[in-house]
């Protein structure tokens, strides 16, 4: 992934970002609300076009090869919702068809994901009857239906209860074992500390630091990620951002 600068309407949301996520790695994008995390992830997932710079997924440009990127990527964010009128079973079938999967492949993959996320018992119920956690788990199942090479999750555990959050983190770790390329945005320090191999800290649209947790602690001279984050936040004028 190369440098990019983004404009949303007249607001410059992100500038000068340059980072790379490797297969088998979980990269955490950490930042406060409004730092530009979601905009960055939307560009990576092809939902938005960067106004300058390039974004590449598996060597494919997200603008010129958007469809091929979408074949390989999974993107999950709270802004994206599933039609509440349908059941998980139909939803998976519909998205499987859109991804040109065979009916057999859809069934097999659906069974695996529903089992892992404990949705099987509810697969024929309308989504509108689901709790927030259940909806989030189904959204994850839909996003992973096509067994993507690249997984981009925006605040995946936000608003979830402890049990559902644990299920999600376990799933991310399992995908890491499968050599998937995983990018997670979060503002929760514990998630970043416990889950990510490398962390990028985004403040006011700029990537101010990236590296392993040890590297960040050493560079900032702090003892926890939270301390490091606040130190960087002050250093880079986050209050004015």
């Amino acid at each position: 992934m190369k440098k990019k600068a983004l404009h949303k309407r007249t607001v410059e949301a992100v500038r000068g970002i340059d980072f790379e996520v490797k297969p088998g790695e979980i990269y955490g994008l950490l930042g406060p609300n409004g730092a530009g995390k979601t905009t960055t992830l939307r560009c990576i997932s092809t939902l938005m076009r960067p106004t300058a710079g390039t974004v590449e997924v598996g060597g494919l440009n997200t603008v010129s090869a958007g469809e091929r990127v979408r074949e390989r990527i999974s993107f999950l964010t709270n802004d994206l919702k599933l039609d509440e009128h349908f059941s998980p079973d139909f939803t998976m079938k519909f998205f499987g068809e859109l991804r040109q999967m065979s009916p057999k492949a859809i069934e097999e993959r659906k069974d695996v994901l529903f089992e892992a996320l404990r949705i099987t018992g509810f697969k024929n119920q309308p989504i509108k009857e689901f709790s927030t956690g259940m909806r989030q788990k189904l959204a994850i199942a839909v996003s992973l239906l096509h067994d993507p090479e690249v997984v981009v999750f925006d605040e995946p555990t936000n608003g979830l209860d402890v049990i559902t959050a644990r299920t999600v983190t376990e799933l991310l770790l399992a995908m890491k074992q499968d050599k998937k390329t995983i990018l997670v945005s979060t503002h929760e320090m514990s998630v970043a500390e416990g889950l990510c191999d490398r962390i990028g800290i985004l403040i006011s649209g700029s990537l101010v630091m990236e590296g392993t947790l040890e590297h960040i602690l050493k560079t900032t001279g702090t003892r926890s990620l939270a301390d490091a984050f606040f130190w960087l936040y002050k250093e880079y004028g986050g209050e004015n951002g």
């Binding site: 091929r68 994206l80 859109l98 991804r99």
Partner: peptide, 17 residues
Amino acid sequence: GEKERGTLATILLTPVK
């Protein structure tokens, strides 16, 4: 309605034109 509910963007994330 689909835009407001966020269901349209979910469809646009698939490799469909």
